[in-house]
Each structure stands twice: as C-alpha cells, then as structure tokens.
Amino acid sequence: MTALLEVKDLEIKFRKDKEMISTVGEISFAVNEGEMLGIVGESGCGKSVTSLAIMGLLPKEMSQIGRNSDILFNGTSLTKLSDADYRRVRGKDISMIFQDPMTSLNPVLTIGYQMKEMILAHEKVSKRECWTRSVEMLKKVGIPRAEQIMDEYPHQLSGGMRQRVMIAIALTLQPKLLIADEPTTALDVTIQAQILDLIKEIQRESNTAVILITHDLGVVAEVCDRVVVMYAGKVVEEAPVKELFVDPKHPYTKGLLGSMPTLINDQNRLNAIPGSVPLPEEMPQGCRFAPRCSQAMPHCYTAEPPLVSLGNSHATSCWLYDKEEQKYG
C-alpha cells in the first residue's frame, strides 16, 4: 500500500493580538489509498483545522503553516501549489463534506444547480450530461425520486437527505480522497448509521480514501481501518482500529475509552478525565497531557515525548513507552 496523503510535521499557527500562536504542533500522519482513517479528539484539539489545512482553506490573513510543514498528495506538495492549481485539486482530487448539512447547501439555489455547478467547475461537459450524471450520483447515494429532487430547494429536504446530497456532490468527480468533518454530528442517531454505512459502502466500491473526523469513538469503531488520536494539537496515538480498542497505550486514549458508557457493567457514574484541554496560548512545556495524566512523571513536565513506534503500525507519543526512559524510570 502506498500513501496517498502524507502530512509531515504540520504546524498551524493562528494570529492572536499580533502574536502567532501554534494550535496544531508538528503532527504527521498518512492516509493510504482506499483506506478509512479516523481522526479522533475532543473539541478544539485541531481536527478541523488540520482538515482545512489539507484543503488549503485556512484564512490566509489569520493563519500560517509552519516552515517545515509539508502536505504531500500523490507525491506532489500541496503547500507549494498556487491558488489556481489548488482550486483544481479541490473537488476533483480531494473533496470535503461538512458537519451541518443544513447550512452547507446554498438555500436559494436548487439541488440540480448546485450539482451541475460542481461538475462545470472542473470539466467542460454539456448540460445534458451534467444532468444525467447528477441524477445517477443522487441515485447512487440512495435518494429516491432523484429526478424530482434536482428541481427542489435544500429546505424541502430532511437533514439526512441533505447530507446525502452533499456526499453526492462531493463524490461526483470521483476524488481519491474524501475528508468528512463530523458528517454525522448534526443528524439523528438512526440517520447517522445510514450515512456512515453509505460512506463506507461508497468507499469500498470506488476505493476512495476517507479521512473521518469525529469525536465519537463509536463511529470510529464501526467504520474506520486506522485511527489517529489527537490531543491539544498533537497526535498522541496512532493504531489500527481493533488494536486501539483492545490495547490502548496512551493514558489519554485509555481515558477516552474509559469514559465511554458500557452496557456490561452497571455504572452509576461515567468516568471522566479530570481537567480540560489547555488553551493554545497556555500550552504546558512538556507533554501537553501531563497536567491531566494520572501516570505523569517529573520528566513529562519538562520534555515533549517523541512518537514511539510499538510495532504493528501502532505508535504513541508518551514517555511511558520510551525505552530510554524505562531504563531510568
């Protein structure tokens, strides 16, 4: 398997009162062709910002990407692309769907128009062909009476339908990578499952790689192949999905899994990780999770842990697993 997308030492800084504050600190991960990668983390840990950075959609005047950062897509560096070239990549090679299907469709334009426009932005084809392709795509994502829906406005559709339309639009040009930024958060639980199944099905069928960004571990367990766990702008653990759930290494991942309610034990209270995510401008010196970590050592407060490979494509950044450290500790 070759890496389709490689994110190398990605650092994202945001401007706050003339100062540049690092929100995402030198993270690296890769997505293989046809793979479904989950990125998990609590709100504000930099998941969405990372996905926007991959799309090249961070507001230029507010943000900056670190000098050593690189994002490679199929071998070409996206960070060095011109605006016009980047636009050609978006939608055609990398597509994205967003959290809220209620607001990600333009309310005053028909579905048909918005689908047609997507095709015309990248290809020169006749209106007729646009129409047939759009209808075909709508049928593929399981929309009944697709021909009629082409003439309807977003407000006439339900949330689940709209998200299906968004997926249809995003996948019309058969991109190699789809970034789904919390695609099911705004939907009912029953619809959530349908949408996830749909994404999974399309991914299998067309061999599209998918980055699924979510804070819902249940979603990850259900559909992803591999998981990246992020905390406060850092990757803390990376592992195949089964391995992560069976044998989590990083104390944060353990905490996350421990705070999920289980059906087996009759719990009265849910476990929680004490404390909250530090603000970007108040990042602790060493390991960013140290102040909340139950197994923190003095060393954790002074030096940032490196990403340690544990074999079996499982890696974590924690001093507990660093061999050198274990000798002395």
């Binding site: 994205m96 769907i97 967003f98 990600s104 469709l105």
Partner: peptide
C-alpha cells in the same frame, strides 16, 4: 461566513464564482 461558502471552496469554486 456561512458554511456553504466554505463547502463551495472545498469543492473547487473560485472567488468570483
């Protein structure tokens, strides 16, 4: 600031469009 503008950008639309 609406999400559909971001969505359009993510699908490759230009500013003038």
């Amino acid at each position: 600031e609406m999400e559909f503008v971001l969505a359009e950008r993510a699908l490759g639309a230009g500013h003038l469009h």
